[in-house]
Design a binder for these strands. Sequence first.
DNA 1: TCTATATTTCGAATAATATAGAAATATATT
DNA 2: AATATATTTCTATATTATTCGAAATATAGA
Lengths: 122, 122
Amino acid sequence: MKKYIDMFKALGDRNRLRILLMLRVRPLCVCEISEVLNIALSTVSSHLKILRNTGLIEDNKDGRWVIYRLAGGNEFFDEIMGAAAAHFEKDTQVIRDRRIIQKISREVCASKLNEKTNGDLG
Amino acid sequence: MKKYIDMFKALGDRNRLRILLMLRVRPLCVCEISEVLNIALSTVSSHLKILRNTGLIEDNKDGRWVIYRLAGGNEFFDEIMGAAAAHFEKDTQVIRDRRIIQKISREVCASKLNEKTNGDLG
DNA sequence: TCTATATTTCGAATAATATAGAAATATATT
DNA sequence: AATATATTTCTATATTATTCGAAATATAGA
């Protein structure tokens, strides 16, 4: 029972649900997710940890980046997402997130985060 | 999107999930639910309010009792429960809860709550 | 090796949620 | 009407979650 409660808890946060829907487009690094959600890297990292512990996502290192992707093989999660897919396809937030994902890359978003830190020069 | 987040939040609490699974056995009054979960009536009432606001349960008055039941007609919720049904059927907590439900009635649980308040006289 | 980059962990502040008990409300019974 | 019962609302408190910034860790490249 706990397993299911944890999964519902994981899905019951707006930012985490957005992350999962974003990962349906393509695998993403932490700074890309941070860019789309517009929240701190450390916050993204903690959400990713929760999703990983729930078995919903997996990660692998690629150079200095950590790339996150949907875990796959979770039948229950697939059924949930399948049942809600039609709704999410039409969701304005999801559409907006996807549009941003298509514009960014792991190389670009990193430098953008730098700009912010050093004061907006651009 | 909010609608789905609210539903996941509603399902992401152990007591609320137990309530929903209990209501699959039969409609229950508030004091019966309080008896099974072993938590305060006011707490049960607030959980029921959340589940009702999420559209997962409905209620009707029967004398001085308020009887709660699964709402029905919620396709997404039905799919979730269907997908998890096999697991919950085997869950020891769910089995225990059902066993208690079969032993109690709205008339009996009310008097039991009274005993507690007046000190356990046996 | 030193520096820059990407991520994670840690610590603290804030916000949200769950809980219980007391008071209020609604209904049934006498 | 008065009393008992069932539930809800209100208030306060305790627990849990979310968030950020700073410090720590890990990797890449000069």
